[in-house]
Amino acid sequence: MISATSFCGVEFGNPLILASGVWGSAASSLARAVENGAGGVTVKSLSLAPRAGHPNPTMVGTKTYFLNAVGLSNPGIEAGKEELRRYKELAAAPLIGSIFAGTADEFAQLAAAVSVSPIDLIELDLSCPNVGREFGEPFAYSAAAIGAITRQVKSATRVPVSVKLSPNAWNIAGLAAAAEAAGADAITAVNTVSGMAINVRARSPVLHNKQGGVSGPALFPLALKCVYDIYERVRIPIIGTGGVTTGEDALAMIMAGATLVGIGSAVYYRGAEVFKKIRAEMEGIMAEEGIKTLDEIRGAAHRACP
């Protein structure tokens, strides 16, 4: 039923992959997602130098939304490369190397550095909403910035590149087109949407960073529309990420046009076995609906009767 999915020439055992930042950057942690049924994994975004991230609270979980402002903590590219190498000793599933930097030059430098690791795809995190004080507004709001960074990264690496976009941008499909025009091999949509939680009794934002990124169920309909719009504008494949919590959500993402489906906050809602659970639910619906392959339904929502 659910079989291997080819994405940018890379074979994923199944289309459900771990989204960047959930379960961090340690090889052992990423490999455990594969043990639990993930078809591939994305490492937490790596930067040139180690970053401690924001003080706690960095995460809030509620029934309807998840909120985080981790502040892109990571051990830096040198230690990160060691984790990526180690991952391939522990697991066979494809590995996506997410990178994050403050300038196009640094992005190119990081892309070159990470490309010596056994990664199958590079993901450019241009869309983190939680480090504005340090870096200004995300590159993912500007077609010019997306174009410049993508071009420079593409000339620094031969590994396929996916550009990760933000649902905060009003014109995400146009921005995806800018990435495609600059040579991107794929689009990851979406990162978290900017948000906040206030503890009324403390009269204070809960996150130390005050603002954060909303993910989980509340993000799902926004992410779905982003993927739907992007699919209409570009020919390159899409990793559909954002609020996918059930098999039904994952199938909807694929019907909107996604080839791979990113799973992040659902780890919070469904536990470590989330990948197996979502896969079983997808197969249940596929059996009921007589769907034989995912290729058959990819983009199906675009072909629905008006």
């Binding site: 959930v22 961090g24 340690a26 052992s28 455990r32 995460m59 985080n68 522990l90 780890v267």
Partner: peptide
């Protein structure tokens, strides 16, 4: 420990990848 409830991966241990908060 960052989140305390198993999402961030900060407290996992090698080589098992299990989370010390869960």
């Amino acid at each position: 420990t960052k989140c305390g409830f198993g999402v961030c991966g900060q407290c996992c241990v090698d080589p098992l990848g299990i989370r010390m908060c869960v």
